[in-house]
């Protein structure tokens, strides 16, 4: 009897340990879920959680070191475009028209001292700013004024063919959070197409291309044409038609005629030089 009581007590104690462990595990799960924000919207008025919504978790997004975080939406809405007024690195007073122009302007807010900006100074010096998205887009580099920047350092970094203006006023006008920062302004409307920051010029160019495309512009500034005019084929359609015609003529991928040893029309042309031979429109000119 005593043994039975002892065994029963041991079983009860073991079960108690298991229950306590389960409760602690459950409490830990609830604590973690609470930290992730589960259920924080459940009590909000007008909020209905759908079964497919899952857990909405407020995640704090951060940019990588050296890249400033974007402004808040409120800040973007409150900011209008302005012309850029300041000093040139060579000491002149200058204004660069931004609002009311017929083109878009990419404002590159850079500093002579920040490490990330060095990538952009280098890229612009290498000619990266010559092909920009938007309508005839002009690149204008803006640094803070002489009171906050080294004039000689900016003069040494300023690419020869790109307008560079030192203007702390422009930083304030555009509420630029830090350098590097890029703002694409539509001249005719004075509207800001897009803005942000990145670590390399390639990333900025991609973002600007998307902003331009969203505004209906191709990378070269021409209007995006998503469909050809009536009666005309789009580029892919023309390519498909050419492929079909070539296949109908027995010319497919790898056909020797696609890889001539010499240009057609030369003394030893790869294609036959018979009159009326396909692919030889200038046959008569040789005579």
């Amino acid at each position: 009897m005593t043994v039975l009581v002892v065994l029963l007590a041991l079983v009860v104690a073991l079960l108690a340990v298991l229950v306590i462990g389960l409760l602690r595990s459950h409490a830990e799960i609830l604590r973690r879920l609470h930290e992730l924000g589960a259920g924080i919207y459940d009590g909000e008025e007008g909020t209905t959680v759908q079964p497919t919504q899952g857990v909405r978790t407020p995640v704090e997004l951060r940019t990588r070191p050296g890249v400033p975080e974007p402004r808040s939406v409120e800040g973007m809405v409150a900011t209008d475009a302005h012309d850029i007024t300041g000093l040139t690195p060579l000491g002149g007073a200058a204004v660069a028209g931004v609002v009311g122009t017929g083109h878009t302007t990419l404002l590159a807010f850079l500093s002579s001292g920040c490490g990330t900006c060095a990538n952009f100074w280098q890229a612009f010096g290498d000619g990266a700013g010559t092909r920009l998205p938007g309508s005839d887009t002009r690149l204008v580099i803006v640094t803070k004024g002489p009171e906050a920047e080294s004039v000689s350092a900016v003069a040494a970094l300023a690419p020869p063919g790109i307008t560079t203006i030192m203007s702390s006023e422009a930083y304030e006008d555009y509420s630029v959070p830090a350098s590097p920062y890029f703002i694409l302004v539509d001249g005719p409307s004075g509207r800001i197409f897009g803005e942000g920051a990145a670590g390399t010029w390639e990333q900025v160019a991609t973002l600007l291309g998307q902003a331009a495309a969203d505004a209906g512009l191709a990378i070269d500034g021409s209007p995006l044409r998503r469909s050809a005019p009536d009666g005309r084929l789009t580029g892919p359609e023309r390519a498909a038609r050419a492929d079909a015609d070539l296949l109908a003529a027995g010319i497919g991928p790898g056909h020797p005629s696609l890889y001539p040893d010499q240009l057609v029309g030369g003394p030893d042309a790869a294609l036959p030089l018979t009159d009326g031979a396909p692919g030889r429109p200038d046959a008569g000119a040789d005579r």
Binding site: T88, A93, G97
Partner: peptide
């Protein structure tokens, strides 16, 4: 814009430089 004893007020959207 003011510099070197000259001043000019260009319209919005214009470029100017005194140097």
């Amino acid at each position: 814009l003011k510099a070197h004893g000259l001043a000019v007020t260009p319209p919005s959207g214009w470029d100017a430089e005194i140097y």
